[in-house]
């Protein structure tokens, strides 16, 4: 495993921990999109179908369990926790799941490396992960009033994507036959979605101001 991949995984882990910290200690999920969190739970459930059949390393298995456990517990908190659920901006978080889920499923059925159930589900999870952040970005744009933890959460997620791209570039040059078009293109699309957010995040950091997205 190279340093970019490890750093990418660690920022991904940090993003989840920041979100859980916010929800667990402040007992608030204001500004967090439940739609995005449900999509992530679906992404991990579909991607890690091989968790008990395809052993890569202890590291991989433990990380998979953490991502599955954390994504489902975040959804549980936001839906059912008697205090946390009251802070959920339900009226602002109106993005429809199926606008994202259905096209990704159709695309995974059409474009995949192998037409088997597990492989199509794995491909579906890649396509869905690429766009799962959209409800969150829409919610940020609508509420505009972004607290630090929510801003850091989205920033860390974007950093994780950027580091994965560096990881692929590194692997392409160091490992023979490392070519994965589906992973790369969906990963690139996903990273580009953060570009706008990153721009405003950088501006607010540079000017030492509170993050504020334009209408």
């Amino acid at each position: 495993m190279n340093i970019f991949r490890l750093a990418g995984d660690m920022t991904h882990l940090a993003s989840v921990l920041v979100l859980l910290l916010k929800i667990h200690t402040i007992k608030s999920c204001a500004g967090v999109s439940l739609k995005t969190q449900e999509l992530y739970a679906l992404v991990f459930a579909c991607r890690y179908l091989d968790i008990f059949t395809n052993f890569v390393s202890l590291y991989n298995t433990v990380m998979k369990l953490i991502f599955l456990g954390s994504s489902f517990s975040i959804v549980w908190y936001m839906r059912y926790h008697k205090v946390v659920r009251r802070s959920y901006d339900k009226d602002q978080d109106t993005f429809r799941h199926y606008f994202l889920v259905l096209p990704c499923l159709v695309l995974a059925l059409l474009i995949n490396e192998k037409f088997t159930f597990k492989e199509v589900m794995w491909t579906f999870s890649l396509y869905l992960e690429a766009v799962a952040i959209l409800p969150q970005l829409v919610l940020l744009q609508r509420t505009r009033n972004i607290d630090n933890l929510t801003g850091q959460y989205v920033f860390l997620l974007g950093a994780y994507r950027g580091l994965y791209i560096l990881n692929w570039i590194y692997r392409y040059f160091t490992e023979p036959h490392f070519v994965h078009w589906i992973t790369w293109i969906s990963g690139l699309v996903q990273t580009l979605l953060y570009a706008d957010f990153f721009y405003y995040y950088y501006q607010s950091w540079k000017n030492n101001q509170k993050l504020h997205l334009p209408a």
Binding site: R5, D9, V56, F67, E113, Y164, N167, H180
Partner: peptide, 10 residues
Amino acid sequence: TEQSEGHDEL
């Protein structure tokens, strides 16, 4: 195996 080659990432 060939199939799991790309699935060693998270």
